[in-house]
Amino acid sequence: MPSFDVVSEIDKPELSNALHQANKELGTRFDFKGTDARVELSESTMTVFADNEFQVKQAVEVLCLKLAARGIDLACLDYQRIEEIGGGKAKQIILLKEGINSDLGRKLVKQIKDKKLKVQTAIQGDQLRITGKKRDDLQTVIAFLREADAGIPLQFNNFRD
């Protein structure tokens, strides 16, 4: 039976490339000369550092342009408020949203079932497995999920016939 997985992932190599490009641009831009503007990446967060709140906003804009150019959907970013960290410095933490949590998974399963398509949906950890007898039904589900507002970017992979 044909099946596919619905996931929400961030391409880690592209993310690190975009981060590197943003840091490079922050180091060469005239309005950031002599400042300590930079972006750091940890497991599931990015932290933007700069000298003041305005420069943090500008650095986040540069970062977003680089992420978009590398094909990373900006809907997977969750911006926290800008904090003063002393010494006239400021930072902003940006959380990376990955995976489909159980509440969103249940909501998507309910929406698919309400469409009355002949497919089975199973929540498997942080992804959904959609199985059906006809390839056309699966393609209808993919089209429906692209239209639905899940709040996070969804990818469809592991399509098996």
Rank of each mutant, 00 (worst) to 15 (best):
S3M: 12
S3A: 15
D5W: 07
V7L: 03
V7D: 02
V7M: 02
E9K: 09
D11W: 08
K12Y: 05
P13S: 05
H20A: 15
Q21C: 05
N23C: 02
K24G: 11
K24N: 09
T28W: 04
K33P: 01
G34D: 13
S44K: 08
T45S: 05
M46S: 03
V48M: 08
F49Q: 06
Q55W: 02
A59D: 11
V60W: 07
L67P: 07
A68C: 01
A69R: 12
R70S: 11
D73T: 01
Y79A: 08
Q80V: 01
Q80N: 12
I85C: 02
I85P: 04
I85A: 07
G88C: 05
Q92L: 06
L95Y: 00
E98P: 01
N101E: 11
S102A: 10
L104D: 00
K107V: 12
D114P: 01
K116I: 07
K118E: 14
Q120W: 05
Q120T: 10
Q120F: 09
T121N: 10
A122M: 12
R129E: 10
G132Q: 09
K134C: 01
D137T: 07
Q139Y: 11
T140K: 13
E147N: 04
A150R: 00
L154Q: 04
F156M: 12
R160M: 15
D161N: 15
